[in-house]
Simulated scan of single mutants.
Amino acid sequence: MSRRSSLPSFLRPWALLLVAALGAFGAFGLSPAQWRQLERAIFGPPPRSERAAPREPFAGRPRVIDGDTMDVNGIRVRMQGIDAFEHDQQCSRAGGGRFACGAAARAELAGLIGNREVTCTPDGSLTHGRTVATCSVPGRDGPIDLNAAMVRSGLAFDCPRYSNGRYADEEAAAKAEKAGAWDGRFTYPWTHRDRANACKPR
């Protein structure tokens, strides 16, 4: 049976503020893991998407977070096998100047989706509480693989460690046509996050 908080609902916002404030100031010398345990003791277990990944496909109209992350029906989805520019990343154009490639990646994903419903097929894993999935939208000639389309746009990259090279062809085509950031200079998103080996094959 799921463990639930015994704290009355009207007290929970105040308790949350207290826990956040104490955590911010490092009160009692508790580690981040200990603070998470304290929060769970007060507020109960985390949402379902943080405890276990869904196993069956799910669909809905999404809220796009960035170039490889979205919320679909209350489930935070991390698109499988790709890595898009981080929200704060800047890239250089071939002719000079810079552009916000992280914001461009988010806009590209939102544009690919439009007003359509997204269908996501999870691979059964979680990363940082996010359900890892391949997502698609209906297209004129069949479903459009959003993961592949983002790599093809030149604003996301194949991540062989998790894709096994599934999007290598899309990346090669984007590079050859100087699509997106391939037209200038950029830092790979995993390097931007100081995780240089994040996408290297296992």
Rank of each mutant, 00 (worst) to 15 (best):
F58Q: 05
A59I: 00
R61E: 12
P62S: 05
P62D: 08
P62N: 10
R63M: 09
R63Q: 14
V64A: 09
I65C: 04
D66H: 04
D68C: 11
T69P: 01
T69I: 07
M70N: 00
D71L: 15
V72P: 01
G74D: 09
R76W: 09
R76V: 06
V77T: 10
V77K: 04
M79I: 13
M79R: 03
G81E: 07
I82D: 02
I82A: 13
D83T: 09
E86K: 00
E86N: 03
H87K: 14
H87P: 14
D88F: 09
Q90N: 09
Q90D: 06
C91N: 07
R93P: 04
R93K: 15
A94P: 03
G95L: 04
G96S: 10
G96H: 07
F99H: 13
A100H: 15
A100G: 02
C101N: 05
C101E: 10
G102K: 02
G102P: 01
A103F: 01
A104T: 11
A104M: 14
R106V: 00
A107V: 06
E108L: 12
A110I: 08
A110C: 12
G111Q: 11
L112A: 11
I113E: 01
I113L: 02
N115R: 15
R116D: 08
V118M: 13
V118L: 05
T119D: 00
C120F: 07
S125D: 11
L126R: 12
R130G: 01
R130P: 03
T131C: 01
V132K: 07
T134E: 02
D141Y: 08
N147F: 10
A148Y: 01
A148L: 10
A149V: 12
V151G: 08
R152Y: 05
G154P: 03
A156L: 13
F157P: 02
C159L: 13
C159V: 05
P160Q: 07
R161W: 09
Y162A: 05
Y162W: 14
Y162N: 03
S163Y: 05
N164Q: 15
G165E: 11
R166V: 00
A168V: 12
A174V: 12
E177A: 15
D183V: 02
G184S: 13
F186C: 11
T187A: 14
T187K: 08
Y188I: 03
P189G: 11
W190M: 09
